[in-house]
Design a protein around this nucleic acid. Structure first.
Lengths: 228, 228
DNA sequence: CAAAAATGTTGACATGAGCAACTTAAAAAC
DNA sequence: GTTTTTAAGTTGCTCATGTCAACATTTTTG
């Protein structure tokens, strides 16, 4: 038969980029249904392939979800980078980053749950590698924004400072993370005041951070990506 | 046949309290597997009943999970109450409560994910009633501990104070919540320093709270359970 | 161009959610 | 104290899904 002319556009035997298509379908379904309990078969249907085609690209559902999660981390990192690009003040940059983090969660709670909640990575084996590196890169942005940006100045690389700084990161990140999830999971709000309230919490975080870091004579601090 | 004597202890046709048995089995499996992707059939097996018996007590899996989640909230509330019972200082009480909150999450991440993550309650319909009330009671403990306990003094019931206080609750809760989930989902740590670090974050929260609440001449503040 | 590797396809199996029809024990009605 | 009603359990279905195996069709490689 001659390649699909007229009415029925015959697809070629090979899809072209099924891997991407499946991940995108998964992101769509996840976004629509706000649940990870979709079926691989559903994704295959959406991509217009047979129910088993996805298995040529993902060993199992877990691996697919890891890929989706990784894309989520990349998207978040991109948005954070985008948001901070044009800003001069370190404080503004950190604020913008936190805002991007929160917005991402509020706009797509299920994706954040997949990314942060331990659907993957049951206890000892840890998360799939692909996801871990994406998450690591995103984390690095957060830590950089706090260390380089928020402080606006180098601090001495002493034991005490390292500990203090790890604490500051943990404080800032957990605050931002918790705010995001409380909003995303609707444990607080929604309310007219929430946006204003959220903003004031963010400002409080920035203030708190500025206050808790003492001035230090010299020395550039180079720390581990995170405590532990 | 005479009721099971000798070797085979014949169970009576009716279980007695299957509802409770199923929920407990679910808590066990959840705790062991750290996943909500167990089957109702598995629970039925554990309870020694047929695969369909649970449906006489729960309309579907969602309803069962809601019941489990509710028990989780009750357990948490009980532990928080227990932890604060014997303590005199408001600050100590609030600290103990936060510690209980964090520990609960670290010890059983999957249960917290079920409780707080929006597995249930897809967007508009909201969470099942049974779960909502349990969550509400737990939230009330948190808010009470902050308002009554942490401040250690009444504040005037003004518009500004209400807003300020809503903010303080949001700050404190999101900090505690975020810390819990970062630890539970292993996005930070584990490390030897984590416990110490966690404790210092908690102390920081308490300090921050004390500092941000201004002294006020008189008037007892009676606030809504939460912003929104 | 032939062989090998990717990528898709169909078919099968086991497991699980949830419905229907039937059974048994306990409770309620008389 | 029997009869009737109802709650709680049981067996047996149907349908969807994850995943395996075997086969088909391209594309790549040697």
């Amino acid at each position: 038969m001659i390649k699909g002319i007229s009415t029925t556009e015959q697809r070629p035997y090979h899809h072209g980029d099924l891997h991407r298509a499946i991940v995108e379908a998964a992101l769509d379904v996840l976004s629509e249904s706000q649940s990870t309990e979709f079926s691989l078969r559903e994704l295959a249907r959406r991509a217009g392939v047979s129910h088993n085609a996805p298995y040529k690209h993902f060993a199992d559902k877990r691996e697919l979800l890891a890929a989706v999660s990784a894309v989520g981390f990349e998207l978040l990192a991109k948005r954070m980078a985008e948001a901070t690009k044009e800003l001069d003040s370190p404080r503004q940059r950190l604020g913008a980053m936190a805002r991007a983090y929160v917005c991402g969660g509020v706009n797509n709670p299920a994706l954040y749950r997949l990314m942060f909640g331990g659907y993957l990575g049951g206890q000892d084996d840890g998360r799939p590698a692909i996801e871990r590196t994406a998450a690591y890169n995103m984390k690095a942005l957060v830590v950089d924004a706090i260390s380089d940006g928020a402080l606006g100045r180098p601090i001495a690389n002493t034991e005490a400072n390292t500990r203090m700084f790890d604490g500051a990161i943990l404080v800032f990140w957990s605050q931002m993370h918790g705010l995001t999830l409380l909003l995303a999971d609707r444990l607080v709000g929604p309310s007219d005041k929430m946006e204003e309230l959220t903003e004031s919490v963010l400002q409080g975080m920035l203030d708190g951070l500025a206050n808790c870091i003492p001035a230090v004579p010299s020395g550039v601090w180079v720390g581990p990506p995170l405590a532990g």
